[in-house]
């Protein structure tokens, strides 16, 4: 009985907070938009009886999906979001790896403090931290003032409102999500393996590539997914830091929902975004499964 409960809880969670909302969104994506409350039709009412519901199901269609594929705007928004997310995930990894490595190799008694420093930014609101970057990056901002005073540049750099600023914002905001899993897997590595490598005549850089790096791959994969997945749908950072030419799917979805008041198309965009993200996640699961079976 207790075992059954333990299994049931995550399923109930999934159904309540994922499947039901997903089906509501999916159903809206098959509806037609209309100027009314709510702004789409048909609206199901379980008290109307089965016949009426059956008639209304007949009104649903997949027209919105073919519309999305007929306009290259949406495809290019998906592709550009994936590109921005992939590049920033890679940059985050480049910065986070040495950080996590340093933390894992630091003396034991320092590690909790270092960990604190990584988590510390979460104590301030995410929005305020992104706003702070506006103050740093803008034309008359701190960064330009510093570089101008040092004589590195003679004209202020335009970073604010470009895709560059979006990369900076995403890398900054998601850095802890990369550092933490990396640290967790690096910290677990048995130090004796490296000693063994050294005893067998392996130079440190070779030992790193042959021992440390392969053992940290689970951390790299987990960190990359934690950064990549939310970055694809990111809305706040491109809206505040990005320029108008930064095309991302989150913004496209926003304008479908708010500017066009077209809930059905907005829902269809959201459903497709979910599918775009589910494919790599399932692939990742499958790869992990195979690795586990091969290891057995």
């Amino acid at each position: 009985m207790r075992k059954w409960l333990v299994i049931a809880i995550p399923y109930v969670w999934m159904i309540l907070f994922f499947l039901i909302p997903f089906f509501i969104v999916f159903k809206i994506s098959l509806s037609e938009s209309e100027i009314s409350i709510p702004p789409y039709t048909p609206v199901f009412d379980i008290f109307e009886g089965w016949e009426s519901i059956k008639a209304k199901i007949g009104e649903l269609d997949f027209e919105k999906y073919s519309f999305i594929f007929s306009d290259e705007l949406y495809t290019s928004a998906y592709l550009s979001s994936i590109k921005i997310a992939a590049v920033s995930t890679f940059l985050t990894l480049l910065i986070a790896y040495p950080l996590a490595y340093g933390m894992a190799r630091a003396p034991r008694e320092w590690q909790p403090t270092l960990m604190m420093f990584v988590i510390l930014p979460f104590w301030t609101s995410f929005l305020i931290r992104v706003y702070a970057w506006i103050g740093i990056l803008k034309n008359e901002g701190l960064l330009n003032a510093l570089l101008l005073n040092l004589g590195v540049i003679s004209e202020p750099l335009t970073i604010m409102n470009t895709t560059m600023a979006v990369y900076i914002g995403i890398v900054y905001s998601y850095l802890p999500f990369m550092v933490l899993p990396l640290y967790a897997s690096l910290e677990k590595i048995d130090g004796r393996l490296l000693e063994a490598a050294e005893d067998l005549g392996s130079p440190p850089w070779k030992a790193f590539w042959q021992v440390t790096f392969p053992l940290s791959i689970p951390g790299i994969v987990a960190g990359c997914f934690l950064v990549f997945i939310p970055a694809v749908g990111e809305f706040v950072i491109p809206d505040l830091l990005g320029g108008s030419e930064t095309l991302m799917i989150g913004k496209t979805l926003w304008s479908e929902f708010f500017n066009n008041r077209d809930w059905p198309v907005a829902s269809a965009v959201a459903v497709l975004l979910l599918l775009v993200l589910i494919i790599p996640i399932v692939g990742f699961q499958w790869a992990q499964q195979r690795a586990r079976e091969a290891g057995r």
Partner: peptide
């Protein structure tokens, strides 16, 4: 847009 979306919901 935000106001209208709330009103229509």
């Amino acid at each position: 847009e935000v106001l209208e979306t709330k009103l229509l919901a």
